[in-house]
Design a protein around this nucleic acid. Structure first.
Lengths: 216, 216
DNA sequence: TTTCAAATAATAGTATTACTATCATAAATA
DNA sequence: TATTTATGATAGTAATACTATTATTTGAAA
């Protein structure tokens, strides 16, 4: 985890872990706009100043938990595609991993991956859609996201080494896995998944899109 | 324009038009987060209360100018594809229209379409990525966007009536035309367009993606 | 065991934001 | 001319996003 994101490492104390845990809960429940350090402190049972000792502001905290998520997804990707040879199957695994509702991993006590997945869908793009993207990017805040995009791009190139847009297709898959999910649930007429409300439909759409794009 | 978006119609007065004009300028220059009614009022030479007489809050004002933009794009789409028979050419026109940097239309004195296009790229998704999407949707705030998505979906179906995901593909085109542009300019490693920084590369990518998706 | 540093809790305070309310005046309209 | 209607000017409030200070607790080194 990039140390520029925090003032004190939240993994190293109970209070720190509580900050992460309750942030995820509150952002999941009320959205990032309604999320404040005051409410967070109340929810934990500490004070606003206590939270500020860990994070400079709520934007860095958001990037922290988003980075956590992408790191976890990267791990899942590596783990799940580890001993698969066929890049087509790998790419299908990736699409499924990015599109599916995640179940909470109990190994990570203070992080609810299922809620994090929902946060990524609704709030993920707010991490970079700011006036200070480039400053944040210089500080490597988006490295986990870019690493994942590169990994997916590599798998795309394994499928078809001549495909011209591996990175753009990778970022399209990642973003659309989330955005089509958001649309399906909130603005269904922007999708073709209105009736089922099932992620499997999104997976089918993305597989169709991707494998037609990369076939020779 | 949906009257629920405003308290007083900004098209009907000089002050109203100034609110639109300076909002576009300020949001373009400093981003939506940094945009406040106080700064807007100062920039116009009126008071905060004056702005509040036209718009309940800055979120509705954002949706107003975004709706304006989608209405304008819809008009351009209709105009540009009006007497084209070949749906393939129509769809190419649509991709180009959505991806290209717009030049300011001097016919609309108080609206700078070029700045609006930039706003859509950086701030567009913030219109719906909120906790109150569904409430906003019930009030038809996203109708211009949905109408456009439907129009594009119809053209996709003209190209291939059997294609299964016309709406999802339409929303993918619209969103990716903007997002790949944002990435190209701010996070280029998420794309394959880093060197040229030219919209024509995005158009090629989207055409490749779309026409491979819909071919029989 | 003392001692010292680090972390936390408690409290206070500031500037800005996102509004609401009031009242006077100017312009348009009936 | 009387009367709405829009605007301007000013004030005020609650919440947000912080910063600062001091006191207390805790845990590790001497």
């Amino acid at each position: 985890m990039n140390p520029s994101l925090y003032l004190r490492d939240p993994e190293q104390s109970e209070l720190g872990k509580n900050i992460i845990k309750h942030s995820i809960q509150l952002i999941h429940d009320n959205g990032f706009e309604a999320f404040t350090f005051k409410k967070l402190a109340e929810s934990i049972g500490t004070t606003e100043a206590g939270v500020y000792r860990y994070f400079e502001n709520k934007h860095k905290l958001l990037i922290y938990i988003i980075s956590w998520y992408w790191g976890w997804i990267q791990f899942q990707l590596n783990y799940q595609t580890n001993n698969i040879k066929d890049p087509i199957i790998k790419l299908k695994k990736v699409i499924t991993l990015l599109s599916s509702n995640v179940e909470d991993d109990i190994a990570t006590g203070h992080v609810d991956e299922s809620q994090l997945h929902q946060i990524l869908i609704s709030e993920g793009s707010k991490a970079y859609l700011t006036n200070h993207v480039e400053k944040d990017n210089q500080q490597e805040f988006f490295k986990p996201y870019k690493d994942l995009c590169n990994s997916v791009g590599d798998i795309i190139l394994e499928c078809n080494p001549k495909y011209k847009y591996p990175h753009s297709l990778a970022s399209t898959i990642i973003e659309m896995a989330h955005l089509q999910n958001f649309f399906m649930n909130h603005l269904p007429s922007l999708t073709d998944f209105s009736k089922s409300k099932s992620e499997s439909e999104i997976i089918k759409y993305l597989e169709d899109l991707v494998f037609n794009a990369i076939r020779d």
